[in-house]
Write a protein that binds this DNA or RNA. Structure first.
Length: 825
DNA sequence: TACAGTGCTTTTTTT
DNA sequence: AAGCACTGTA
């Protein structure tokens, strides 16, 4: 075993060896939080605590996986596999899978993602004859979700005066009713949405004493990462689970609380100290991640927030470079600047692609970045946005699988009942739903008893065929693993073939996606089976059996009297389709991307929480965007935006660029934004300001205005101002002369002083030479820098870079793909 | 019933 | 810009 206490500082050591009683670790950014958590788990186990008795809740699946691996590494054995580590949602889903029947759900309950949930809400709204333009499913969903996260059920929602006032004011008084119907519909469908995974688990603990005591006894040590981002539902669950042993350790940083929109509240940190006596508090204030310059800026920025736990981050790291604050004309120019700078940094400082992250406030900002990176041939990967599992073809495929496992899943059923087209159209579906509602049975049941409802012969036959097919699939579940079932379904339904026959580019892509889905199911089956192998060898014992007498096989709510666990099922073990589906919805797309792959990472700041990168670009620092226009109405909202800014700054280890554009596209229209107010908060002594009028690539302007580089265009005539700056004087003071506009185009800014260049006037007949054979010693003429001599060649064949010593302007690195050089000799 | 074309809306962040 | 719902046509 590694001497794990070595290499910890005093505070970290304190946090690790304090194992009994409530502990709160206030961990500043980059203070070695993960290290402390993993070491603490290893320490617990080294002290003889059984891994089965340790529960660790993380914010992402990725963090859970990493934690497991690191504990394993420290201990040098595989005991860590037995730890209960995962996200709140996945851990609770797993437990609920074995306990769901106690609260009336089938053990194969479906997990609805946000799209499914909204779809159900929409159905409910329409059935209530409400206008779904006014009662927008997404608005209603958010409202319900907030309620759930605060442990407010439909009944309480209806009776809460304050909540009702809010809904009245928004002229949406029916939300309480929708909430009620929605909850009932989900229950009837045997489905839980994301929030249900929390509140149903809470309900289980509250209403089933055996379950409460079982898990209280089991989880002797509880650890919670990213505690500042927990919501009241999670708080209450922890409180219940930890009540027996009170060995609850929470780790968080109030300065990084950025999920209040999801119901998270910093109150939980204060409440924690009130709820337990003698909370041991440890502050980790030494930062090991960033340079002094970066950290100083971060500290000053966050100091603008009022309420916070007092702490001061410091570091022994070097000063590092100043931060670069860069303004560009457009969002496209911003993208170009970022791509150019990455290219330049790779060559100059030998960085790899994976050393860079481009972080932004909204997913929509990725597009401009993507285009530039693609044009430069820089490999990148985008996190977030539409995940793989949200693609239509994937959801369709999975809907079949869901229906097979849980025939009450009405969302899945409606999705595929006529896909591929089989003559069960909208009219028929509507009728089925109506019958189902009238008789309070599931839509599936209506289908199985279709002959009772007087459908036309043709329709009846179509329904019959459909039911027969689904039943035949379902009969496979007991003997076949998830992969085999999926392959069979793909073949029999013709959905794969249909996509295969679509020879359009999108069709091809969709076909490939279904193949990828099948591959990933295969991978999951193999992985899971492997882990089972270890069970058989006695290293690991699966699931809850360890603690209680074996439970009675649960009544399957699926198909006509499903038999209890058979030998075959036991042999099949954990690789069932049901088990597969249970985890699939909870996967983030970050989970199946390799973080070590050598590509530039693009993601929102939210998604970057907990990560670190050598070089970071914080993009889009503009009013309306960051801080978001929607979050500037209250101090609380604004402070959360500022914390978000703090988070992005503290992701950087070595270098940080902060960029913003004068104009950018929004909903297909150009909008003009002021620089972000947060830029005012950057202390000048740590920041270099500059202007990138299109970066190095001013020969190939791809900017939306066409013709010439941004810089060139700027030199053109300026017309009338037509912008609506509200704080002109201040803006000028900060950022130089005001943006101006010519008549037809948006305003341009005058750049702050650039590095001095002695202007060179090229000859009238200047013609760029072919520079593919350029070599050291060549004399050249550059359009702007004048005459010089090539002193060094580097870069790759398709992106050569020459270092030229100019007579008047000194040494410059010239990217030959973009610059025009005339070879003189 | 199925598809094609048209107009309309888009809330920041996510399990 | 783009996706979606709705309308009209075959």
């Amino acid at each position: 075993m590694i001497d794990y206490l070595k290499g910890l500082n005093e505070r970290q050591k304190e946090a690790v060896i304090t194992i009994d009683g409530p502990l709160m670790i206030v961990a500043g950014a980059g203070s070695g939080k993960t290290k402390v958590l993993t070491t603490r788990i290893a320490h617990l186990m080294a002290q003889g605590v059984d891994a089965f008795n340790i529960l660790a809740l993380t914010f992402t699946n990725k963090a859970a996986k990493e934690m497991k691996e690191r504990v394993e590494h420290i201990l040098g054995n595989h005991e860590a596999r037995n730890l209960y580590i995962g996200t709140f949602h996945s851990v609770f889903a797993r437990i609920l899978r074995s306990e769901a029947t106690k609260i009336g759900y089938p053990s194969n309950f479906t997990i609805y993602d946000t799209d499914d949930a909204k779809s159900v809400i929409k159905t409910v709204i329409n059935e209530m004859n409400l206008d779904d333009k006014h009662y927008k499913p997404s608005t209603v969903y958010n409202r319900i979700s907030s309620a759930k996260n605060a442990l407010v059920n439909a009944e309480e929602y209806k009776n809460d005066w304050h909540i009702q006032q809010e809904d009245m004011r928004a002229n949406r008084p029916a939300i309480a009713q929708i909430y009620d119907s929605y909850a009932k519909r989900c229950f009837k469908n045997g489905a839980m949405d994301f929030d249900d995974l929390l509140i149903k688990f809470y309900e289980l603990l509250k209403t089933v004493p055996e379950s409460l005591s079982k898990y209280q006894r089991r989880f002797k040590y509880i650890m919670i990462d990213e505690y500042q981002d927990t919501n009241p539902a999670q708080y209450e669950i922890i409180k219940l689970l930890g009540a027996m042993h009170e060995n609850v350790c929470v780790v968080g940083d109030d300065a990084q609380s950025i999920y209040s929109f999801r119901g998270a509240t910093i109150e939980n940190i204060l409440q924690f100290q009130k709820d337990y006596d003698n909370v041991h508090v440890v502050k980790l204030e030494q930062n090991y991640r960033s340079t002094k310059n970066i950290l100083n800026v971060a500290n000053e920025v966050i100091a603008n927030n009022k309420g916070q736990i007092e702490k001061t981050l410091f570091t022994d790291n070097g000063d590092g470079e100043k931060l670069k604050l860069v303004r560009t004309l457009t969002d496209n120019d911003e993208g170009k600047f970022v791509a150019d700078t990455i290219q330049e940094q790779k060559l100059r400082n030998h960085y790899r692609n994976k050393d860079f992250a481009i972080l932004y406030r909204t997913n929509a900002q990725s597009r401009a970045m993507e285009e530039s990176l693609r044009r430069m041939g820089i490999p990148y990967i985008i996190y977030g946005g539409i995940s793989f599992y949200q693609r239509k073809e994937i959801k369709d495929f999975i809907a079949y699988l869901r229906l097979i496992v849980n025939p009450r899943d009405e969302e899945a059923l409606k999705r595929i009942i006529n896909y591929p087209v089989r003559g069960i159209g909208k009219t028929t579906v509507d009728k089925c739903v109506l019958f189902a509602n009238e008789q309070n049975i599931s839509m599936w049941e209506v289908l199985t008893r279709a002959q009772e409802y007087g459908f036309k012969a043709g329709t009846l036959e179509a329904i019959d065929n459909f039911v027969t097919m689904i039943r035949s699939f379902a009969s496979m579940l007991q003997k076949n693993n998830a992969y085999d079932v999926a392959v069979h379904v793909g073949k029999q339904t013709n959905i794969v073939k249909e996509l295969f026959n679509d020879k359009s580019t999108e069709g091809l892509q969709r076909y490939e996606n279904t193949q990828e889905l099948l591959n990933s199911i295969k991978e999951w089956v193999d992985d899971t089976a492997n882990r089972q192998q270890i069970d058989d060898d006695g290293v690991m014992i699966e699931e809850e059996k360890l603690f209680d007498e074996p439970e009675k096989p649960q009544q399957e709510l699926s198909f006509d009297a499903a038999p209890a666990q058979t030998e075959e099922q036991k042999k099949l073990g954990a690789v069932t389709l049901g088990a597969y589906l249970q985890q699939i919805t909870l996967l983030t797309d970050a989970d199946d991307k390799d973080p070590d792959a050598d590509n530039v990472k693009l993601m929102t700041i939210h998604a970057a929480k907990g990560l670190e990168f050598e070089c970071v670009f914080a993009a889009g620092l503009e009013e309306q965007l960051f801080p978001s226009a929607l979050s500037i109405n209250t101090r609380e909202e604004l402070e959360e935006e500022r914390r978000l800014f703090y988070v992005v700054i503290t992701r950087a280890k070595k270098k940080l660029w902060i960029t913003y554009a004068n104009t950018r596209y929004k909903f297909g229209q150009i909008v003009q934004n002021e620089p972000s107010r947060f830029l005012d908060e950057l202390p000048e002594q740590y920041v270099d300001k500059s202007y990138a009028g299109g970066g190095l690539r001013n020969q190939s302007s791809g900017s939306s205005f066409g013709g010439g580089s941004a810089f060139d265009r700027m030199k053109g005539g300026f017309g009338n101002r037509n912008n609506d700056y509200t704080d002109v004087a201040n803006a000028e003071k900060r950022y130089g002369a005001p943006p101006k506009a010519n008549t037809s185009k948006p305003s341009y800014a005058t750049p702050p002083a650039r590095p001095q260049t002695v202007e060179h006037k090229p000859a009238a007949d200047f013609v760029a030479s072919d520079t593919s054979n350029l070599e050291v010693g060549n004399k050249v003429e550059h359009q702007k820098f004048g005459f010089g001599e090539v002193i060094k060649m580097e870069g790759s064949a398709h992106n050569p870079i020459a270092t030229v010593k100019f007579e008047l302007n000194g040494e410059k690195k010239i990217m030959l793909n973009y610059a025009k050089l005339r070879i003189v000799n």
